[in-house]
């Protein structure tokens, strides 16, 4: 286990110009770029897009997280970035995923839960980091079942 393993979770609001199709296409680009960079930097995580908002979990060495976060913060395709947690963790929750994407299709079964979780998250309610993480892991787990992994 690397000694400075940390997890960062934030949520933000979509600011991609254009319609839903344009957004979907741009998000695909973001995910591809993320996978490429994250693999090199030793980062894993998941990106959820639901109700016009992003939720992203990223885990890895602290310095790599701080570097990539700077890049993400300068990205004008989203705004109102709200950091929910940036804490040392014992192990990765998304090991094996350079950047797993959880879009509308994937979160279909959890729309209501996602909306409630997001609401709490932007208000930075206590324990919202935990609810967000649980939500994302739940969706990933269901994914794995369907994919027969």
């Amino acid at each position: 286990m690397p000694k400075t393993l940390r997890r960062l979770i934030y949520c933000s609001r979509n600011a991609i110009p254009g319609d839903a199709v344009a957004a979907e296409r741009t998000i695909q680009d973001i995910v591809l770029a993320s996978r490429r960079h994250n693999r090199v930097a030793g980062l894993t995580g998941a990106l959820m897009f639901t109700h016009g908002c992003f939720v992203q979990a990223l885990e890895g060495p602290r310095d790599a997280l701080e570097d990539v976060f700077e890049r993400i913060q300068c990205d004008e395709r989203h705004r109102d970035v709200t950091v929910l947690t940036f804490e040392p963790v014992a192990e990765r929750a998304f090991s094996g995923w350079d950047m797993e994407y959880l879009g509308d299709a994937e979160t279909a079964g959890s729309q209501a839960a996602a909306a409630a979780t997001l609401n709490g998250a932007f208000r930075q309610e206590a324990r919202s980091a935990d609810s967000v993480l649980a939500l994302m892991r739940g969706v990933v787990a269901r994914e794995k079942v369907w994919a027969g992994v």
């Binding site: 960062l8 701080e66 913060q73 300068c74 709200t82 950091v83 940036f86």
Partner: peptide
């Protein structure tokens, strides 16, 4: 306007938000 927006977004510094 861009600078006020971008530079006022939270930073991660030495493990702190």
């Amino acid at each position: 306007a861009r600078l006020v927006d971008l530079l006022s977004r939270p930073y991660l510094v030495r493990g702190e938000v």
